[in-house]
Simulated assay, not measured.
Amino acid sequence: MRRAVCPGSFDPVTNGHLDIVGRASRLFDEVIVGVLINQSKSGLFTVEERIDMLREVTSSYDNVRVESFRGLLVDFCRAQQASVLIKGLRAVSDFDYELQMAQMNIGLAGVETLFMPTNPLYSFLSSSLVKDVAKWGGDVSAHVPELVREALATRLTQP
């Protein structure tokens, strides 16, 4: 079985993330969306909320599942029996960082990294940017699934 991991924090998941997951799902028998648990960072959404949103918005893909992980990504890949990572690249600046990570991952555990160029529609999109725009009342409906837009609106209007 050809199995790949799409890792990230997904706080929140964007249409750019979903584009990469959807394209990867056509290339691999199984795609595992790995949600990083980073205890040194507090996200807008809890890990459980992010997992729930991801499961909902990827439910149309029969070969995609969502799991959380902490620690080294290569250890998560080993535990999932996945030998490939899928990383979306928006710009050259992403490549500089991701190349270093890819080289470390192949050296540590023989895990390959496949870089997918982002669809130009999403080349500027990031979770941080979506949160900032939503926080100030901007319309993010073109950039996230409706479920996520609603969750952002609810979370950002709470005192």
Rank of each mutant, 00 (worst) to 15 (best):
S25V: 05
V148A: 04
L44N: 09
T118E: 10
Y122V: 11
R65T: 11
M116W: 14
L54H: 01
I32C: 04
S83M: 08
S128T: 13
C77A: 12
G88A: 07
S123G: 10
R78Y: 07
T157H: 06
L89R: 00
E98P: 11
S42A: 10
P117Q: 13
G22W: 06
L121Y: 13
R3T: 12
H17V: 10
V64T: 07
Y61N: 08
A109T: 01
L114C: 12
F45D: 01
I20A: 01
S123Q: 13
A153V: 03
I20G: 00
G107W: 11
P159S: 11
S9I: 04
V148R: 01
Q158D: 13
E30F: 06
G107F: 12
A142R: 11
E67Q: 10
L36I: 08
R70I: 00
L152M: 09
L99A: 05
V140H: 04
L54K: 05
L85I: 15
I86G: 00
A153F: 00
E56L: 14
S40L: 10
S123D: 12
D62G: 13
G138N: 07
E67M: 10
R90S: 05
L99V: 09
T14W: 00
Y97Q: 06
M53W: 09
S60D: 15
L85N: 04
S126G: 11
T118W: 03
E112R: 13
I32T: 04
A153R: 13
E98Y: 14
V130C: 08
Y97H: 14
V57L: 07
I32D: 01
V111W: 01
S68P: 02
H143K: 03
K87W: 02
S83N: 08
Y61D: 05
W136G: 01
A82Q: 03
I20C: 02
